[in-house]
Every structure is written in C-alpha cells, then in structure tokens.
Amino acid sequence: MTRTLFAYSGAALAEIAGCFAFWAWLRLGRSVWWVVPGLVSLTLFAWLLTLVESEAAGRTYAAYGGIYIVASILWLWGIEGHRPDRWDVAGGTICLAGMAVILFGPRTA
C-alpha cells in the first residue's frame, strides 16, 4: 500500500506540473521552453502509474482520478495561491472515498 500511495502521489505531482508547464506556455505567455520539462514530467507521471499494485490498468487509472483531484486542489492552494472553499474540500473527500472503493474493494476471483 505504501508503494501505491507513493506512486499515486508522485504521479499526481508530475502530471499537474507537466500540464501546468503547457498552461504556462499557452495561457500565461511563458516561453515555449516550458514545454521541455513539462514533457519530462508527463513521462514520469506515466511511468509512476505503472508502479501501482493493481492487475488492471483501467482500475489503476480510475482510482488515480481521486488522488489527482485532491492533488489539483492542493496545487490550487499551494502554487496558485487560491484557498480551496468548502465545496472543493467536500468534492475532494468524496473523490478519495470513491478511489478507495475502486482500488481496495474486495474482488471475486
């Protein structure tokens, strides 16, 4: 489980940072050179998801969605300086609960 949490946390940070590099280039007028570390970061994101302990890629990606949402809210707050409101917190909590059901729910053989 520790490996899964590490992989999801690292993947979320890498994906958000990689996507933000494109956002900075296309929406904030930064240099096109922002894309280079963005692509490296997105590659790291994809590799980290392969470390998740799950037999099915689709389940891994579905469960990752909850982590990504919460990480995006934390990015909103920590990097962009916008404090999450109660709806952000409630939505993130619901998504984490859904992620736990998808990833850790008992499976039949």
Rank of each mutant, 00 (worst) to 15 (best):
residue 75 W to N: 10
residue 76 L to V: 12
residue 84 P to F: 02
residue 97 A to N: 06
residue 85 D to E: 11
residue 37 P to D: 10
residue 59 R to G: 00
residue 78 G to L: 11
residue 23 W to G: 10
residue 26 L to C: 06
residue 95 C to Y: 11
residue 54 S to I: 00
residue 20 F to R: 08
residue 1 M to V: 09
residue 79 I to L: 08
residue 39 L to I: 04
residue 48 L to Y: 00
residue 76 L to E: 03
residue 42 L to K: 01
residue 77 W to H: 05
residue 97 A to M: 14
residue 101 V to L: 13
residue 99 M to L: 15
residue 32 V to D: 12
residue 73 I to N: 03
residue 20 F to D: 07
residue 100 A to H: 07
residue 4 T to K: 02
residue 96 L to A: 08
residue 60 T to V: 07
residue 24 A to K: 01
residue 25 W to L: 10
residue 87 W to E: 08
residue 55 E to H: 02
residue 97 A to C: 14
residue 28 L to P: 00
residue 61 Y to M: 05
residue 94 I to P: 05
residue 89 V to L: 11
residue 31 S to K: 11
residue 83 R to Q: 11
residue 73 I to R: 09
residue 86 R to C: 07
residue 79 I to E: 06
residue 72 S to F: 00
residue 28 L to H: 12
residue 53 E to N: 08
residue 11 A to D: 03
residue 65 G to Y: 05
residue 12 A to P: 06
residue 33 W to H: 14
residue 14 A to N: 03
residue 34 W to K: 06
residue 4 T to M: 00
residue 19 C to T: 12
residue 20 F to W: 15
residue 101 V to T: 12
residue 50 T to P: 03
residue 107 R to I: 06
residue 40 V to R: 13
residue 100 A to Y: 12
residue 1 M to G: 04
residue 14 A to D: 08
residue 93 T to D: 09
residue 98 G to H: 12
residue 49 L to K: 04
residue 3 R to P: 00
residue 58 G to F: 00
residue 98 G to D: 11
residue 101 V to P: 07
residue 62 A to H: 07
residue 31 S to M: 13
residue 34 W to E: 12
residue 62 A to M: 15
residue 82 H to A: 13
residue 96 L to E: 09
residue 16 I to W: 00
residue 90 A to T: 09
residue 6 F to N: 03
residue 88 D to Y: 04
residue 55 E to C: 04
residue 89 V to K: 05
residue 30 R to C: 11
residue 74 L to H: 04
residue 83 R to V: 14
residue 77 W to E: 11
residue 93 T to K: 01
residue 101 V to K: 05
residue 104 F to L: 09
residue 29 G to N: 09
residue 49 L to Y: 02
residue 45 F to I: 02
residue 91 G to Y: 09
residue 27 R to L: 15
residue 93 T to P: 12
residue 27 R to S: 13
residue 11 A to W: 04
residue 90 A to M: 15
residue 22 F to W: 15
residue 5 L to G: 06
residue 74 L to R: 02
residue 43 T to R: 07
residue 36 V to E: 13
residue 57 A to F: 04
residue 18 G to V: 07
residue 47 W to P: 02
residue 31 S to H: 09
residue 41 S to P: 05
residue 103 L to G: 00
residue 4 T to R: 12
residue 68 Y to G: 08
residue 29 G to T: 13
residue 13 L to F: 04
residue 84 P to Q: 01
residue 81 G to M: 13
residue 51 L to T: 00
residue 77 W to N: 12
residue 96 L to R: 10
residue 23 W to P: 04
residue 65 G to Q: 14
residue 41 S to V: 01
residue 2 T to Q: 13
residue 93 T to A: 15
residue 7 A to Q: 03
residue 106 P to N: 01
residue 5 L to I: 14
residue 53 E to G: 02
residue 48 L to W: 06
residue 11 A to I: 01
